[in-house]
Design a protein around this nucleic acid. Structure first.
Lengths: 339, 339
DNA sequence: AATTAGCACTCTCGCCTGGTGAGTGCTAAG
DNA sequence: CTTAGCACTCACCAGGCGAGAGTGCTAATT
């Protein structure tokens, strides 16, 4: 635990560095922040903070820069969460409330965050497997193709083309459709997968059953995770830490990866109802060890159905971002809950 | 028209510059390409080419660099189109042929191009307005919401949530559904918009008609253009011309713009059956005047339903890209035609 | 014992400098 | 018309230098 004065100095260093992106020296600190201390004293304290690992020194005669540990302490103990401005809050409400489909709401949320904070934003769409099913309907397109339309709880619509090797006549289609549409509301798709299978097999012939089930299985088993959306990439280009194309490349490679990888990345960081922060080397994934992630899950009926994340340099405006994310995630959950 | 020797020299300059990204001098040219000429002669010819506007000189004592006009001449007269390798061709066929939904096929095509060429790729999904309608179906979700499911010709599925201010009972839903699903196959959605309206108004009450039509109209009027996909952004970071974050930023801003803007950009460049090339200053849009665009439309039953574009520096491997795009666009059209 | 003033020291950054090399344009010879 | 020769230009690089910011240490002050 740091004493009060060290805390004040650490806080000043972090906040100054966050706003200027320049190493901060004792003189600047004494001038800008009313600490009532001379530069010399501050120097001593900063030396202590450096020894304790909260600050780094890029080179002997430069100012100090917060280390990952320094940011961590700041976020955990010093940070005051900064709620969005009234204007921002209003924009958030306006933009989220009127949309009728879950995916668009989530997309709008990601855009908003990317607009209000100068970093990149990841959004994981609600996955069908996690959601509660409301409707499952088959539409015959032609005699070899059925279109499976799924409507799940937070206003998520997805469709899937099913291909049949043997044609189905009209009557069989009807039977299949009514079979599937019976008694399904309120089950998760994974439940469906387990409970309805046997019943289906009995009612359909085994051949037809196999064909359809093979393809349904892909969808229902949850191997189809929510899609991932990236917004505000350009924001990163304005950050001085990404002026170096090298770093930018490695980050962009990460953000361009497979959806599964990104979802997994986020899922490990998201806990229901709280905002997660992981800073620099705290991240196991090497490619993002010079970044900070702020993650939030959004929920429908108390269940996390998707995630939002802000990706930026460790020198991130944590106060603003945390406040923003809390607001947006809550509003998002609220709006989706009503769909 | 340039004489043969000037053509050869221009070609050598362009190709050398494309592969090295370094201004090319007379000595290099004489050594690398068997022109049977001394550096001095080449110098004279290059001076002529510069006077005529085909080459630029970054500064007095550097080599020459092709100008936009030089690239244009190269593309129009000197280029030999380089078809993809057998392996590439095989990958293309494999990756496009087995998918059942148009949007995934197009996405796969864009990914392939971005994999085989080190530039960014834009893909415009088939728009519903342009496609031919196969199925239009309404699913009642609850008494205030209908889900409109549209299946159009090149395997395009789209859904749209319709909201009703007054609830519909079961019977009315049925009537609506059967009404809409009757006699629609083979019409474009825009045709539908014009022809069926009156009939619908007669059969439904005017109040209900207005509610539904207002919302249908958005979808059917074609104000809903195909979505735009961007692949291979990271490729650009490897290009020396985008090491400068400035240029990168302006380009990324363009690629991140509204779908409508990008679609409009491409539409003006696409002619059925041919590959379009626009180079540097030839582009009206200021933000891409340091880029080259290679555009191709893909077709279903002879009608352009979507577009692909490669975006890169003017120093682009035109031979490879043109060959690749021709192959991919053709294969794409072929596969979609079969859906 | 804590704080601070003073001072020498370190290190980066920007600027200038001169040398190097690639490439040119010109001229005159082949 | 082509080419060899030559003087010239200019970007690039390395090294040197001064300025400025910031540090750590020491001694004086409170």
């Amino acid at each position: 635990m740091l004493d009060l004065r060290k805390q004040q100095i650490l806080q000043a260093v972090v906040e100054d560095y966050i706003s200027t992106a320049e190493p901060v020296g004792s003189r600047t600190l004494a001038r800008k922040y009313r600490l009532g201390l001379s530069p010399a004293t501050i120097r001593n304290e900063m030396a202590d903070l450096e020894d304790a690992g909260y600050l780094d020194q890029p080179h002997t005669s430069a100012g100090r820069v917060p280390s990952d540990k320094g940011y961590r302490y700041y976020v955990d103990c010093l940070l005051e969460l900064q709620p969005p401005s009234p204007q921002e809050r209003q924009r958030i409400e306006e933009n989220l409330s009127y949309r009728r489909e879950g995916t668009y709401v989530v997309q709008a949320a990601a855009r908003l965050v990317a607009e209000f904070a100068p970093y990149a934003v990841l959004a994981v769409m609600p996955g069908l497997n996690r959601s509660r099913l409301r409707h499952l309907q088959l539409l015959p397109l032609d005699d070899h193709h059925l279109l499976l339309v799924m409507a799940a709880d937070p206003g998520v619509i997805d469709t899937r083309m099913l291909e049949l090797s043997t044609p189905l006549d009209r009557k069989e289609r009807r039977r299949l459709v009514s079979l599937l549409n019976r008694d399904l509301a309120g089950l998760t798709l994974s439940d469906l997968d387990a409970t309805i299978r046997q019943e289906l097999r009995d009612e359909l012939g085994p051949a037809l059953y196999e064909q359809i089930m093979d393809q349904l299985h892909d969808v229902l088993s949850g191997s189809e995770p929510g899609k991932v959306l990236v917004e505000g990439l350009v924001n990163l280009l304005r950050q001085p830490e990404f002026q170096d194309v090298q770093k930018l490349t490695s980050l962009l490679e990460v953000l361009g990866r497979q959806d599964e990888w990104l979802i997994d990345l986020l899922r490990r960081r998201v806990r229901p109802g709280e905002i997660g922060v992981s800073i620099g080397r705290e991240n196991e994934e090497e490619a993002i060890q010079s970044c900070a992630l702020v993650t939030a899950g959004y929920e429908v009926r108390g269940e996390v159905v998707g995630m939002l994340a802000v990706v930026g340099p460790t020198r991130m405006e944590y106060g603003r971002v945390l406040g923003l994310m809390r607001e947006v995630a809550e509003e998002l959950s609220r709006v989706l809950d009503e769909l």
